[in-house]
Structure formats: structure tokens, C-alpha cells
Amino acid sequence: MKVLTRIGFWLLVAAIGLFSIFPFYYAVISSLRSGADLFSVAYLPERLDFSNYVAVFERQPFGTNIVNSVIVAASVVALSLALGITAAYAFGRIRFRGRSLLLMTILAVSMFPQVAVLSGMFELIRSFGLYNTLPGLILANLMLTLPFTVWVLTTFMRELPKEIEEAAFVDGATPWIVVRRIFLPLMMPAAVTTGLLAFIVAWNEFLFALTFTLTNERRTVPPAIALMSGSTAYELPWGTIMAASVIVTLPIIALVLVFQRKIVAGLTAGAVKG
């Protein structure tokens, strides 16, 4: 009986692992094959062919696309955290009329499907003169990342003992100093976690990036990949697309590995009480 439970357990683990890893594995395999090979099903690489990886950069300004993505994602993370932490301070600590209503509204914003706000957002971006620019994309992406950054950070801020901040006030700190010298260091784990999530959202964002850009040089990676064309109009450059996908996944994996310990700390928040 015991053995059966163990086997069942490991089968389940294997199934879950397979389910989550297989798509990425298949992408890696496909990116290493080319030509007609691509259209046969294979689960093991027969030979390593890096031509797809070279082709990604040759046929379109993919380097520029990556730089664009980095600029957009990094700016979104920086802005989300700056706004999120200050907003969290206001929501978590200052009593004002309509606080919960405002918080609810922020949450409600994130409930709309992206498509619903697409046309409105388009008008907004164009009237600001930001169409086909990176700042336009940054602004649009903030709409996706701010709600959850504000919420998570507010929740976290509420868990920080109030006395710490009161002690700082008695010590003569201004609210700004309290945020910078007391809250920011204490909120680092939460900030890293939400920052990373914001990065992933902005990095993978497709719909806004597709709609609000016009030229290849202004595109971020996801629409660039989607709009890749083969050597002829009839060819779907499957291998190249897979290679590009693998390339853009790497930075995220790297980031997660680097911040892994911080994320875990952030997920077990509340351990900060001194």
C-alpha cells in the first residue's frame, strides 16, 4: 500500500513536471532543427543546428527589438515600484476618505480584459503623441502592472508593525524619510517579487505592443516574433520563431535564478518583524 502511494505520488509529480516543461523543451528542440525536419515529430535533437539562431538576427532588427524590450520592461519595473511603494504607504498607513473605494477601483482596473481597454488606450496614447514610441508602451504596460504591485505592496505594508514607523516619527523622520530609510529596506523582498512579476508581464506583453507600434524598429520582442516572416510569403519560419522564443526566455530564467532567494523571502513575508 505504502509503495503504491509513493508510486502514485511520483507519477503525479512526473505528470506535472512534464506538463510544465514539455512546451519549453519542444521549443528548444525545434529551434535546433531546420528545413523539412521541423515538420516531422521528434522528441530528441538529432544534431545541433544553430542556423535558426543566426537567422533571427539576420532577417530582422531582432537586436533592436530586444533592446526595446529591455528598456520597456526595466522602465515599467522602476516606475511600478516607485509608484507602488509610495501608493502602498498612502493606502497602508494614511487614513483618508475613500481609501477602500480607491483601492477597489485599482483592483477593478485589472479585471478588464486588455482588449476592452485597447481602443481607449489607443486614443490616449495617440493624443499624447506617444504612438509608435517606447514611452507609449511603457505607459500602457503600467496599466497592467500597477494594480497588482500596489495591492501586493499595500498588503505587505499593512503587515509591517506600525510602531516601527511611529518610532521613526518620534525620532524626527519625515514621511519621505520613513519610506526611504525604513520601509524601502524592509519591503525589499516584496519589492523584488512584485518587481520580477512586473518585469515578466511587461516582457511578455503582446497586445499593446502590437497595437501601439508601427515600425519594426520600435517593436518589442513578442510582436516581433509574431510578425516574423520567412524567405517567402508562404513559409512560416517555425525554426526561427522557436529560436527567438528561446532567446527571450533566457533573461527571465536568469532573473528568477538570481532573485530566487529573495522571492522566497517575499512569499514568506511577515518574517521581518524585529
Partner: peptide, 16 residues
């Protein structure tokens, strides 16, 4: 801070 007071909290409230 301007009142010339200092407070010791029950939970100590040290900066962790």
C-alpha cells in the same frame, strides 16, 4: 519630534 519627548514602545519597535 518637536515636543522634546522620547518614547519606548512595548514591542521595542527597533528598526530591524
Amino acid at each position: 519630534a518637536k515636543r522634546g519627548i522620547a518614547m519606548v514602545f512595548q514591542s521595542y519597535a527597533l528598526y530591524p
